[in-house]
Design a binder for these strands. Structure first.
Lengths: 244, 244
DNA sequence: CCGACCGTTTGATGTAGGTCAAGTTTTTGA
DNA sequence: TCAAAAACTTGACCTACATCAAACGGTCGG
C-alpha cells in the first residue's frame, strides 16, 4: 500500500497485476510477465487453496475478494488475511501455506506458475525486491490487526474496518461526486475478520447508521456522512496515514 | 524457527547471533559479521526503540526478552511481537517502525549499524535470503497469534502461550533430566501478549496448576506434568510441529 | 531488620458481547 | 413468477472476562 509508484508505462491488458508485482517495471519486463500469465476464475465461496496445499502457482487478484482463514478443530475460524484487487498470493520462499484461501466473492486471479516465476525473481532483482515490500506491508497490517483483535471494542473494530474500506476505495470522480462505497464482505465475513459474531456486527453497523455516521443505500452499499467521527470511533491515533 | 540449520562452524564469541542472521554462513562471512558487531545492553523496562524511530541499527537478541507493542491513545496496549534470544530486530527495506520495542527483562543485543549491514546484504545474497526467511516466519507467527487473539478462550490462550514457551525451551539434558522451564514474561506482559488482564492470567495459570497440568517452583519457574493435556488445552490441531 | 513498593493472587461484582430464537429481507433457482 | 434458502436484523437472556478492591508475599534501599 505504501510506495505506490506507478510508472508511466501503459500496461497492455491487466494493469493492476503488474502494479502489484512491480511498481517500477519497464516495458521489457512487462512483456516478460505478460507471456507467463494465465487467468483463473473462482465462484463465491469456492476454495482457492486449502491449508497444507502446495502453491503450484502464485497469483495477483484482478477482480473480487479472497480471504485467508485459520480454523480450529471445533470449527471456530478467524480470518488472517484479506486480498483485494492488486493484492498478491505467494511469498518469497514459501511453497506451502498454513491457512485456507477462499473466494469471498467471484474472483479472477492472474496466475504465474511457480517455477518460471521463481526463475524470473532470480533474474530480475527489483521484482524480487517488490515482493519483499509486499510481504513487509502484510506484516505491518497483521500487527495493526492484532491490536484490533486483542484490545478494541466491537464498536471500534467495526469503525476500523469501515475506515479501512473507505481508505482503500477512496477516489474522487472528475465531476467531484463521491461514488457510493461498498463493503467487500458479507456480515459473516466481517465478523470473521474482526473476531466477532454476525449479530454483533449487525448491531454495531446499525449503531453507526443511527449515530448518523454512515448512510446505507442497501446492505452493502453506503456513504460516509461524518468521516471525522468515523475516524475517532476507531480508537486509533489519528496521524492520518497516506491515502493510496 | 524453522530451517534451523546450524553449520559446523565454531563462532568465536556470540554464536547465537550468527545462527540468527545466517544459518549457513562460512567462516569468511562470519568474520565479516564479527568485525561489524557491537553489543548494547538494556535494563528491564528500558525502551530499545520508540514508535516512529529511525532504525539506526539492526540487532540480534543475545540475552533476555524484548517485546514489540502497540498502544492506543487511551493507553490500552497490545503486544505484537516477542523477541527471544536468536530473534532479530530489523526487516528488509524497513528503516522505521510503527511500534515500541521494550526490554521485558535485562537484554543484551548484538547490533550492526544499518548502512554497512545493508551493504553486506547486497554483497552476500544468502544472508539477505536468511533475513527474508526470518520475516516470513514472523508473518506465520503473527497469523497464529491472530487466531489466538480473535477466537481462543482465556484458558486456551494461556495454554497456547505456555506450550509455546515449552516448545522454545525444550531440550533434553545429557543425564535425561528435564530442567525447569521458566516463563520469560511477567504476568502483566503475558496479559499483554494474550489480550487479557493480569487477573485473568493469574486465575488461568492457577487453573492449570490445580488441574495438575503444571507444577510451579516459584512464580516464574515451572515443570510440565501432563504435556498431552496441555496441548489439548490449546485448542490447536495437534499436527505436532517440529521441535526446535 | 524494617517498611515501602511492586508483582501477584483472590474475591465480589458488573458488563460487553456471545448465544439462542424469532422475524424480515434478499437472493436463488426451477 | 414464486417458493425455498440464504443473509441479515432484532430481541431476550446468559456467561466469560473485565473491573474494582483487598490482601499477600518477595525484594530492595536505608
Amino acid at each position: 500500500m505504501k510506495n505506490n509508484v506507478i510508472s508511466g508505462v501503459k500496461c497492455t491488458d491487466c494493469p493492476i497485476q503488474h502494479r502489484a508485482v512491480c511498481s517500477r517495471c519497464d516495458h521489457a519486463e512487462l512483456m516478460l510477465l505478460e507471456s507467463m500469465k494465465k487467468y483463473r476464475s473462482f465462484k463465491a465461496g469456492e476454495a482457492i487453496f486449502w491449508r497444507g496445499d502446495d502453491l503450484t502457482y502464485v497469483a495477483s487478484v484482478i477482480e473480487g475478494v479472497a480471504t485467508l482463514e485459520k480454523t480450529m478443530e471445533d470449527g471456530r475460524t478467524q480470518m488472517v488475511g484479506l486480498l483485494l484487487p492488486s493484492d498478491f498470493i505467494g511469498h518469497p520462499g514459501r511453497t506451502r501455506i498454513d491457512f485456507d484461501v477462499t473466494a469471498a466473492s467471484d474472483v479472477v486471479l492472474c496466475c504465474f506458475d511457480r517455477a518460471p516465476f521463481d526463475q524470473l525473481l532470480k533474474d530480475v532483482p527489483h521484482i524480487s525486491q517488490r515482493m519483499i515490500e509486499l510481504a513487509m506491508d502484510e506484516l505491518d497490517a497483521a500487527r495493526d490487526w492484532m491490536l484490533l483483535l486483542g484490545r478494541k471494542t466491537a464498536g471500534e473494530k467495526i469503525a476500523t474496518f469501515v475506515e479501512m474500506v473507505v481508505r482503500r476505495q477512496h477516489f474522487d470522480r472528475k465531476d467531484g461526486m463521491r461514488p457510493d462505497l461498498v463493503l467487500p464482505l458479507s456480515r459473516g465475513d466481517i465478523a470473521n475478520y474482526l473476531g466477532l459474531t454476525v449479530e454483533t456486527v449487525s448491531r454495531q453497523i446499525g449503531k453507526l447508521k443511527s449515530d448518523g455516521i454512515l448512510e446505507f443505500i442497501d446492505k452493502r452499499r453506503f456513504r460516509v456522512i461524518d468521516l471525522e467521527r468515523l475516524q475517532q470511533a476507531t480508537g486509533d491515533d489519528d496521524d492520518g496515514g497516506v491515502i493510496v
